[in-house]
């Protein structure tokens, strides 16, 4: 599973965008979104998913159950 951003909660603070090691986060139509094809759940980069760790609103960056878990190579 990749992470996703709950659009209704996002404050557009931009904090997650700069931290993502895979440049998976971008601004789209006034809120931030994660590209599930690029998100590696930060595996191999950091212990904690960076977007989750910095987001000022709890439960805004969450696992997206609709895509399979990321498999590290």
């Amino acid at each position: 599973m990749a992470y996703k951003i709950v659009a209704s909660q996002c404050t557009n603070c931009t904090a997650c965008e700069a931290l993502c090691p895979n440049m998976a986060i971008s601004e789209a139509k006034g809120t931030f979104v994660i590209d599930p094809a690029l998100c590696t759940e930060c595996i191999g980069h950091f212990e904690d998913p960076q977007c989750v760790a910095i987001c000022p609103v709890d439960d805004t960056c969450v696992l997206d159950a609709s895509v399979p878990r990321y498999q590290p190579a």
């Binding site: 931290l19 950091f46 212990e47 904690d48 960076q50 989750v52 760790a53 910095i54």
Partner: peptide, 8 residues
Amino acid sequence: WIFWENKR
């Protein structure tokens, strides 16, 4: 919390 060295 604080965000410090890639951790919360």
